[in-house]
Amino acid sequence: MSLFNIFKKTKGQTSEPQSVDSTIDGRTADGSDWVYSDEVRRHFFEPQNFTTKTPADYNGLGMVGSPACGDMMKIWLTIDPKTERIRDFKWQTFGCASAIASTSMLSVMVTENGGRTVDEALQIKPTDIIDRLSGLPDRKIHCSVLGDKALQAAVNDYFRRTRQEQRMKPEGSRVIDRQLNITDKDIEKAVVDGARTLEAVQAKTKVGTGDRGCLAEVEDLIRFYVEKYYG
């Protein structure tokens, strides 16, 4: 291997986000990650399907995130109960360009070509949104995850309203590390925030530092979520 390759980033092997200075005067260490694709720009500057007021005839409402986290999203679905096709997807988003563009793109993907059915819509993965946006910077991937979660929440609401509770996907979480009370959701969040290895997830969550018995399961979960979000 050439010496120079040491410093090259190979595909699928992205480096951990460095602990770089944040805020106003700081930028990422390498200054990259800053060019959004034209598709992101388009959906950011001309967002599709957003609404300024609550739609009259929706039957599925989903809201995720919070302004404190820096991202918040609210979506309203209008689902045809006979065909289960999503006829309309309206949204509001508080967040950066990636968050706005991701929601806009998701709304297009769900409603294009006459609209997907509920089951088809739930097949959309964060990576599908990112692909349609021609990519997002690594540390903006969580923005697309938010859309995925908002959609699931809105569909759950639709199932609740139509008395199909058995079809709801539970939002609940499972405790993995009993000593520190760390759940699968915490591990998922760590992966979404950029941790791809056990060490990186531990740096964020301390998972398994006391209860080492859970490490095998933690590693399984990391593989699963890395595949899900970055695969």
């Binding site: 460095q18 944040s22 106003i24 968050a99 925030d193």
Partner: peptide, 15 residues
């Protein structure tokens, strides 16, 4: 410039 987390490498807003 902004103090938003979205522009920071660490995803932490302005200290």
């Amino acid at each position: 410039s902004t103090g938003s987390a979205c522009t920071s490498g660490s995803l932490e807003p302005s200290h």
